[in-house]
């Protein structure tokens, strides 16, 4: 548990846009331990997705570096899995083929890959939907497929960009509990982005609050709540409520800052 997994050092990322250079992230430093559940929160547009994309290797830092297992991240690779807010499943593949595809890429035969994918189907409660096409599923089911697909080839790190952001409140809570159950079974280092403080504190070992753009680490709050957690118990836990207040207070200034700068009327 105390092994250092990810080390972000002096990370800066800027984009060239129509109105010149936009600094999304500036001098961000953060270390993440193995099998730790880290949740990033921050005002919208502060650079959370950008940070996750660099961890995934989709985007390159402008300066600074990200180490994964002491190696500089050079590009995307199967030691990581990614879950998007909009699911981005393959519409032309059935549920089971969506999940098995990563294993086929790893060199498993189609038959073996499907066999292994079945385990994840069971883990995510997708039995009975193996041969359905994604467009026939509800949002919650789609994201179950998204998570199963990301877990199928057994990556060490799971990167999740507001994965429950487009689900209704009820499904969202259910999926949070499901995610914790799965994480408890398949130990992974999780980096989870959300703008919901309720979700962040419920899930995290550590909540990292980012500043408004350009993004840096504003504060880190350790969440020493008992596990396993579920809504029935954790929700009414006084420490949970206190921690939520604490995160909210740190975040508040940044949200106000964001409003003043980008939504000035």
């Amino acid at each position: 548990m105390d092994e250092l997994k990810i080390e972000i050092k002096n990370l800066t990322k800027s984009f060239m846009g129509g109105e010149g250079e936009v600094k999304a992230i500036e001098n961000l430093n953060l270390s993440i331990k193995e099998n730790e559940f880290t949740v990033l929160v921050g005002p919208s547009g502060c650079g959370k997705s950008t940070l996750l994309y660099m961890l995934a290797g989709f985007e390159k830092p402008t300066s600074g570096s990200i180490l994964l297992d002491n190696q500089i991240i050079k590009g995307p690779g199967p030691d990581r899995g990614f879950v998007f807010q909009d699911f981005v499943l393959y519409p032309w593949k059935t549920v089971v083929r969506n999940i098995s595809f990563g294993l086929e890429i790893q060199g498993f035969s189609q038959k073996e890959a499907i066999e292994k994918a079945k385990q994840k189907i069971n883990l995510l409660g997708l039995q009975g939907f193996e041969n359905a096409y994604p467009h026939t599923l509800s949002g919650g089911m789609k994201q179950r497929v998204g998570i199963a697909r990301a877990l199928a080839y057994n990556p060490k790190v799971l990167l999740m960009d507001e994965p429950f952001g487009s689900l209704d409140a009820q499904t969202r809570k259910l999926m949070q509990e499901e995610l914790l159950r799965i994480w408890n079974k398949e130990k992974k280092t999780v980096v989870f982005v959300t703008h919901s403080v309720i979700e962040a504190v419920f899930l995290a070992d550590r909540v990292v609050v980012l500043t408004d753009r350009p993004s840096r680490v504003k504060g880190i709050i350790d969440i020493h709540l008992d596990r396993p957690r579920d809504y029935e118990h954790t929700y009414t836990d006084e420490r949970y409520i206190e921690l939520r207040e604490k995160v909210l207070n740190i975040l508040k200034d940044e949200v106000i800052h964001h409003k003043q700068h980008y939504e000035s009327v």
């Binding site: 290797g57 989709f58 995307p76 690779g77 199967p78 990614f82 981005v88 990563g102 890429i105 697909r149």
Partner: peptide, 8 residues
Amino acid sequence: WSTSIMGA
């Protein structure tokens, strides 16, 4: 991206 991270 979803596919490239799987090692394709």
